[in-house]
């Protein structure tokens, strides 16, 4: 893949998200109240870097805890706009073919996103959105020697499920997916040109912390 190919793909993702927002008409009145929720879960991340020095190896982020705070702003039913702040923290390691795992450092990944959510039947909901993502390494070492790199755009999609009994308690199960490009300044110095597209999947339990009173 040439470097010029990737911006095109990002455009595809962002155009779709833009279309989604345009298709949800602005509300003439609020159909529900704004609410604040938090979710806690576990997140899997695909390979950050694949390289080969004598033999191939991968740099991966282990399964890491993920914490999300979301403000839901009601639009015209059944639509909701979610503004989310998400943090996950995990160990970055090298995984050799021989099975050796070499720790590099720990990293916090922060994202700020906006998504459009639609309530579906039977307690399900689906959302899609976009946002910004940043890697904040615990130490400036290895692939993070010169920092975590710039803030990058990301695309996100989620599926939620709230069983009838859980609705009243504000509980829901969530599966969230997002993707972004990963390339640090140290990797660029090493000779990497293209970002690795990193896919992340999180499973979480969401709990409503606060709900605004009716107008």
């Amino acid at each position: 893949m040439k470097g010029v190919g990737r911006p095109g793909r990002w455009r595809v993702g962002l155009v779709c998200v833009g279309w989604l927002f345009l298709s949800a008409r602005p509300p003439d009145r609020l159909s529900a109240q704004a609410s604040l929720s938090a979710s806690l879960g576990a997140r899997y991340s695909s390979t950050l870097v694949h390289d080969s020095i004598v033999s191939p190896f991968d740099i991966r982020l282990g399964i890491s805890p993920a914490l999300t705070l979301a403000v839901a702003l009601p639009l015209e039913a059944p639509w909701t706009a979610d503004v989310t702040l998400d943090a996950s923290y995990g160990a970055v390691s090298r995984h050799d073919q021989s099975g050796t795992v070499a720790p590099i450092t720990h990293v916090t990944i922060l994202t700020l996103g906006v998504a459009l959510r639609r309530d579906l039947r039977h307690g399900f909901s689906a959302s899609a959105g976009a946002g910004l993502l940043a890697y904040l390494p615990a130490e400036h070492i290895g692939i993070f020697r010169d920092g975590g790199g710039p803030v990058v755009p990301m695309g996100t999609a989620a599926l939620g499920y709230s069983p009838p009994l859980a609705v009243r308690r504000g509980l829901a199960l969530e599966a969230r997916y997002d993707l972004h490009g990963f390339l640090t300044p140290a990797l660029r110095t090493e000779g990497f040109v293209n970002s690795t597209v990193v896919h992340r999947v999180a499973l979480a339990v969401r709990y409503r912390l606060w709900k605004g009173s009716p107008p």
Binding site: M1, V12, W19, L20, V49, S52, G155, S195
Partner: peptide
């Protein structure tokens, strides 16, 4: 509105397929 699942699928599929990054020179 009914196109939401399709739009999500297109948005995700559009960025999901990629070629791997080229390894740099390690000579």
């Amino acid at each position: 509105m009914r196109y939401l699942p399709l739009a999500v699928a297109v948005a995700v599929a559009g960025v999901a397929c990629h070629e791997p990054t080229l390894p740099p020179n390690h000579t």
